[in-house]
């Protein structure tokens, strides 16, 4: 079956299931934490950008099921950003990755195989397939885990932050 596709075109995400919590949730306090994480990871893993190639110019929308907000990652080596966005926003993206928070975290930390997650439909990828493959392979070549990097980014504050991540992991893992 032949069909014209959207390949290479930015897409717009609208969450039809956005709940009321998402509308009132204040995201402002979260932004500096995310900014610090992404800049720290970029600083200690410069090799990440060599594997990212053209993926560095793409917008990755992360839809962690059960989490009341979305994450938007732009891994531009000159200015990498990770921003939380309301589920009521319309968001332009190149790649959308959806799955349980716990699953996505395991994938980022290479605790579980992303191909197997895809085969088993535990994650869903839409949009620029090449960009997500570049990001997956770049992340997979890192020896440290996100938890390790959070620890080095926040020093004494890392412990409560990791506890928060673990709690979110448990809650969303059970709910999603």
């Amino acid at each position: 079956m032949k069909k014209k596709t959207h390949r290479g075109q930015p897409r717009i995400f609208r969450d039809p299931k956005a709940g009321p919590i998402s509308r009132v949730l204040p995201l402002l306090p979260l932004q500096p934490v995310l900014r610090r994480i992404v800049r720290h990871v970029a600083k200690i893993h410069p090799e990440l950008f060599e594997r990212l190639e053209s993926g560095a110019n793409k917008t990755f929308l992360i839809n962690a099921k059960g989490v009341p907000f979305l994450l938007v990652l732009k891994p531009d080596p000159a200015n990498p950003t990770l921003v939380a966005r309301s589920r009521h926003d319309e968001i332009q993206y190149d790649v959308l990755v959806s799955g349980k928070f716990s699953t996505l975290l395991q994938m980022i930390d290479s605790k579980t195989d992303s191909d197997a997650l895809f085969f088993n439909r535990d994650i869903l990828i839409t949009g620029d397939t090449e960009a997500i493959l570049l990001l997956r392979n770049a992340l997979d070549d890192m020896d440290t885990t996100l938890a390790d990097d959070v620890a080095t980014a926040f020093g004494p504050l890392a412990k409560p932050l990791r506890a928060s991540i673990n709690m979110a992991n448990r809650i969303t893992g059970a709910r999603a």
């Binding site: 439909r121 869903l124 990828i125 397939t129």
Partner: peptide, 20 residues
């Protein structure tokens, strides 16, 4: 991968395309 595209519908059925 540059020629692969996954397109889900509202019920998360997934169409896989290679090229056109």
């Amino acid at each position: 991968a540059s020629h692969v595209e996954y397109e889900p519908d509202e019920e998360e059925n997934l169409t896989t395309r290679l090229g056109e």
